[in-house]
Structure formats: C-alpha cells, structure tokens
C-alpha cells in the first residue's frame, strides 16, 4: 500500500514538472525564437527543419538594423518620454495621495470618488477627443503631446493613498506639534516611509510608458519624434522580408524592459499583485 503511494507520488511529481516545464517553454518560446532569429542568416531563417541556434551568431544583424533606421534617435525619444512621464507621475501621485490621506478640505470625499470613477473610463474612448485637443493646442509632433496627458494617473493615486493611510496619524499630529509644515512632513516622513510603494509605481509606469504604442503613433508625424515601438512598426513595413533585421529591432525594444524585469522583479511582481488585489 505505502509502496503504491510512493510510486504514485513520484509519478505525480514527474507529471507536475512535465506540465510546468512544457508551459514554461511555451511562455518563453517567442523570446527565444526572437533572439535566435535575430542572429541568423537569411538562409538559416528559412531552412527546414529550423535550427534553434544559429551556426555562427550574426551580430552584424544588429548593426545593420541599427543603421537601416534611426533607431538611436527612437531610443533617445523613448527614454525622454519614459523619464519625463514617470517623473511627472511620481510628483502628481505623491502630492495627490498626501492630500487625500492627510489633509482636510471641503469636498474631499467627492473629489476622491470622482478620481475613482475615472478608472471606469476606457482610455481607448478618450483618444479621439484628446487627439483633437492636441491639435487645438498645436502640440502635434512634440514631446509635450506624448508626455503631458500621461503625467497623472488616478489609479496610482488611489494605490498610494491606501499606502499613505497606513502611516499612523499620530506621527502627523506629533509633527504638527513640532511646527513641521505639511510639505516638509510629506517629503521627510511620508515619502521615505513609503519608498518601496513609490518605487513600484515608478517601475510599473516605466514599463507602460516604454511600451506605449497608439498614442505616440497618433500625435507624432516626423521621423525625428518617433518612439521605438512606432519606429519598429515602420521599420517592419520598410524592411519587408528581412525577418532577421526585424527580429533584431524587436529585441531592441523588448530587451531593456526584460533586463529591468530580471533585476527588479520583486518590486514589479509585488506592485502588480498589490494593485491587482486592491481592485
């Protein structure tokens, strides 16, 4: 009997790992295939059966892709937009979360509910009219257009407010007795005490800014203003059948985020879990 159970357990464990490994391979296959294809020669790319690894990695594909389109410029644009958006988000989020969690002012509850209510509005719905606004402001083809509409997020404000609420009120009252100003209290106490939450928000925002696609596509015209994701799509149309170059260009968009993810996955996973579970 116990012998049978032991055998059963071993089979169950093998099955479990078989399923998990199969799923894991399925999950990372597109990434592996992207990297492998980006290092192949055109002949290797279409050979049957396909090889998992190129015979000699064609690193020159990257140079070629990099030169074929102004990817350096796209890269810089993406960095500028991501950096400015994230800084903006952090400033507005900390200020608003502080106001909602510690300050008293008339209409606070109403404004907070209004902020929460905006979460139900699909962003896809607003893009048409926001595009109109950008045209009226004459912001088309500028960094402003890509950054300013995104420097405030009701979702992050809601998230950080919940974190700020957990800081004991008594600290605030003690600071008040010591004649510490609200602003100083926010900077000196609230921000350092919640630095992990703020850091998570920053990384989540970096990821979403970096991957943003449709909005920057709409509000830019010139090649000089294009971000990586738009540049990649344009390059895909231009490069036509040079799949190895398209894969190299895709790698350039994906790799920076994967590297950030591998180093900071603790914050990213925690940030997404928390924001998910608060619902």
């Amino acid at each position: 009997m116990s012998q049978n159970r032991k055998v059963g357990n071993i089979i169950a464990t093998i099955l479990k790992y078989a399923v998990l490994i199969f799923g894991a391979v399925f999950t990372i296959l597109p990434f592996v295939w992207m990297i492998s294809s980006s290092l192949k020669t055109p002949t290797e790319l279409v050979q049957i059966p396909p090889s998992l690894f190129p015979e000699t990695p064609q690193w020159s594909n990257y140079q070629e892709a990099w030169k074929a389109a102004p990817f350096a410029r796209y890269f810089v644009n993406t960095l500028i937009v991501t950096f400015c958006t994230t800084c903006g988000v952090l400033v507005t989020t900390v200020l608003s979360a502080f106001a909602f969690s510690r300050l008293n002012f008339p209409g606070k509850k109403t404004v907070f509910s209004l902020f929460l209510a905006t979460l139900m509005i699909p962003g896809e719905m607003l893009i048409i009219t926001n595009y109109e606004t950008i045209i009226n402001l004459k912001w088309i083809d500028s960094y402003k257009a890509m950054i300013i509409p995104w420097i405030s997020s009701a979702f992050y404000i809601y998230l950080l407010t919940r974190f700020f609420m957990q800081v004991p009120e008594s600290l605030y009252l003690a600071a008040k007795v010591d004649k510490c100003s609200d602003f100083k209290y926010m900077i000196k106490i609230m921000v350092p005490m919640n630095k992990q939450a703020i850091f998570s928000i920053a990384i989540l925002n970096i990821i979403s800014s970096w991957n943003a696609f449709l909005w920057p596509l709409l509000v830019t015209n010139s090649q000089e203003m294009r971000v990586l994701s738009n540049g990649l799509v344009r390059f895909q149309t231009e490069a036509g059948s040079s799949t190895e170059l398209i894969m190299a260009a895709s790698c350039m968009l994906v790799m920076p985020i994967i590297i950030i993810y591998l180093f900071l996955r603790k914050y990213i996973i925690e940030g997404v879990t928390r924001s998910g579970l608060k619902g």
């Binding site: 909602f100 002012f105 008339p106 902020f115 905006t118 607003l126 009219t129 926001n130 405030s152 009701a154």
Partner: peptide
C-alpha cells in the same frame, strides 16, 4: 478645514479635467 488640499491636488485635477473629463463629455 482649508482649501490647501486643493493646492496639492491641482496638477492632477488639471490633467484629469483636460484629458479625461473633458474628452469624455466631448466624445
């Protein structure tokens, strides 16, 4: 109670009115 809280909320409120509330109504 003071209106100071709105000073802290001002940046978010401006962005929200311009790029969420207004376009919603306009759409």
């Amino acid at each position: 109670k003071s209106f100071k809280g709105y000073l802290y909320l001002l940046p978010s409120i401006i962005i929200m009115l311009a790029f969420t509330i207004y376009p919603l109504i306009r759409a």
